[in-house]
Amino acid sequence: MSSNLELKLGQAWSKPPFIKSPVLRWTLVICVLLYLVAAFSSIEVNWSRVYDGLEHGWRFVLAFASPDLSSRATDIREGLIESAVITMASTAVGIALSVPIGLGAANNISILPVYLLCRGIITFSRALNEIVLAILLVAIFGFGPLAGFLTLSFATIGFLSKLLAEEIENIDKIQAEAVRSTGATWLQRFDYGIFPQVLPRLIGLSMYRLDINFRESAVLGLVGAGGIGATLNTAFDRYEFDTAAAILLVIIGTVMVLEYLSGIVRFKMR
């Protein structure tokens, strides 16, 4: 038995703390607590306003008990079709643009200038909030589905390219190396060595983005970018809470169906 071991035996052991210095550790804890107290105490709540508002809220909730699909049926159908078109078109265009950008943004297969350019596009796309972008595009292209389509295509790029690039960075390098060792060209290396490894994930992410785009298209209508959101906005403006409730139920139902379908597709793709 070494003398070192004798010293250690009988001593308690605990996991080394994340922040070594106790002074720094406790200072940070106290600062966070002080910040939380200050933050919560700065929230102002007008309780009498809340009391008045409860009644409005309750009427809205009650409307869900008697949703009215029929009196604005044509508007709802048209809004829904418009949203579906925006969703499908923006997802398809988004995917088509995301694949090359995702490839360029993967640091294990890209070259530096292309990498920086593609990462720049992704960062820009992710930095711009969908609603802000939609407001800008509505200002440029006018009210209607074109602005919604452009907004969602652009947002899809930021989402899909980033995750695809990360997936490509995590592939099994040896499989790609084996394809390279046969004398394959760059495109063949992608087709045989990389693409099969990321395809299931790409399809899963695309399905996921499809249902995000549908939900977003409902929100974007509120700022004038067309789709079911525009119909919803009109219903609220007219205080037709029962029609609004019907529209919301339709949106929820559609998202659930999409979610279910994407689950099936992802399972089959494994």
Binding site: Q175, A178, Y192
Partner: peptide, 18 residues
């Protein structure tokens, strides 16, 4: 170092990519 998600045939034929 086979490409796991490709068929056996595709893996063999990948030797002809050059």
């Amino acid at each position: 170092a086979l490409v796991e998600r490709l068929t056996v045939m595709e893996n063999v034929l990948s030797g002809r990519l050059g």
